[in-house]
Amino acid sequence: MSDLLSNLDDKLVILFRLEPGCLGPDGLEHIEVFCNIAERALQSLNQSVCRWRLTPRYDKSLDEVQYSLAGKVLPLDKAIKYLQACHTEHSQLMGAFEDKLTQLINQYLDRKASLKT
Rank of each mutant, 00 (worst) to 15 (best):
R111G: 11
C50R: 01
L18N: 04
L12A: 08
K60P: 01
I31D: 02
T117H: 14
G27K: 04
I37C: 00
I31P: 01
F16W: 12
K60N: 12
Q66I: 15
K116Y: 09
K112M: 14
L93F: 01
A41Q: 15
T55L: 07
C50S: 05
R51K: 09
D3Q: 10
I37S: 12
P75D: 14
R51H: 09
S6W: 08
L45Y: 04
H90E: 08
A113D: 06
E64P: 00
R111A: 13
Q84H: 14
E29H: 06
L18Q: 04
V49A: 14
F16V: 15
L4D: 10
H90V: 01
N106M: 11
D10K: 11
L74M: 11
R51E: 06
F97H: 02
E32W: 03
L15T: 15
K78S: 14
Y58C: 03
K112P: 00
K60E: 14
L12D: 06
P25V: 14
L76E: 13
L69K: 06
L101Q: 07
L5C: 14
D10N: 15
L23T: 07
A79N: 05
K78D: 13
Q103F: 12
V33E: 15
K72D: 06
L18T: 14
V33C: 09
L101R: 07
V73A: 04
Y82W: 08
S68T: 07
L109D: 02
I37W: 08
L28F: 08
D10W: 08
L8C: 00
S6R: 12
E39Q: 15
E19W: 00
N46H: 13
W52I: 09
S61N: 10
A79I: 03
K78T: 10
T117Q: 15
L109E: 07
L76Q: 15
L93A: 01
I80Q: 12
K116R: 14
E19M: 07
S6C: 09
L62M: 09
A41D: 12
D110L: 08
D59Y: 01
G71W: 02
E32H: 11
S68D: 03
I105Q: 08
P56I: 00
Y58F: 10
D110M: 03
L93I: 05
L8N: 15
S2P: 00
L45I: 03
E64L: 09
D99G: 00
L23R: 08
D3A: 10
P20L: 06
A85F: 06
C86I: 00
E32K: 09
G95S: 07
